[in-house]
């Protein structure tokens, strides 16, 4: 985790912690992900499952959905993105304040899936940057939790802007 806990008798009973500021900010950020769920299709059922009690996103500090992009820092794009709604998605992303991360949830969001047609965006990474891709049609909740943990790892290990 990057946080070293040192307790000695020299400094009294309270002890102290040594760490780097970057590491501490990363640690704080990775456990307070405010999610904006951009849910458009059937993957939404899996998203509901993963955020409710059985799989419990709250264990990762990512349970609280914010329906205003201005209060969110994790954009979860869940489901097929059509060309019609693509500008809306882009605007939601642009309204989010830094630092912000994006998860592409499900095959359609990652690549367009089997909707290789006139209506569908072939992967949201063609219009905005994506941090974690979670494949599956739809992905199992375990896969999503794995993706969340991958994102936490990424947040922890990246250089923090503040």
């Amino acid at each position: 985790m990057g946080v070293k806990r040192v307790v000695t008798g020299v400094f009294g009973e309270e002890g102290f912690i040594t760490t780097k500021l970057d590491s501490m900010v990363g640690w704080a950020r990775k456990y307070s992900l405010f999610v904006y769920p951009f849910v458009t299709a059937c993957c939404g059922m899996e998203y509901m499952s993963v955020s409710c009690a059985h799989y419990d996103l709250d264990r990762f500090g990512a349970a609280l959905p914010r329906f205003s992009p201005r209060q969110a820092d994790l954009l979860m794009v869940v489901g097929t993105i059509s060309h019609k709604i693509a500008p809306v998605l882009l605007r939601v992303y642009e309204q989010m304040t830094e630092p912000k991360w994006v998860i592409a949830f499900g095959t359609c969001t990652c690549t367009g899936g089997f909707y290789d047609n006139y209506a569908t965006v072939q992967g949201i990474d063609t219009i905005l940057p994506v941090d974690v891709y979670i494949p599956g049609c739809p992905p199992r909740p375990e896969t999503v939790l794995d993706g969340i943990m991958k994102l936490q790892e990424k947040i922890q290990n990246s250089k923090q802007e503040y």
Binding site: H83, K84, A86, P87, L90, G112, N117, Y118, A119, V121, Q122, G123, T126, I127
Partner: peptide, 29 residues
């Protein structure tokens, strides 16, 4: 009712090109 106003042509016609894309944002993917 389904497509956006800027969309040109009618996509379920048999002579609409299979690979023709008309994105509103982003590249022709």
């Amino acid at each position: 009712i389904l497509m956006y106003e800027e969309f040109e042509g009618h996509p379920l016609r048999k002579d609409y090109p299979l690979r023709k894309r008309q994105p509103r944002v982003g590249p022709l993917n």
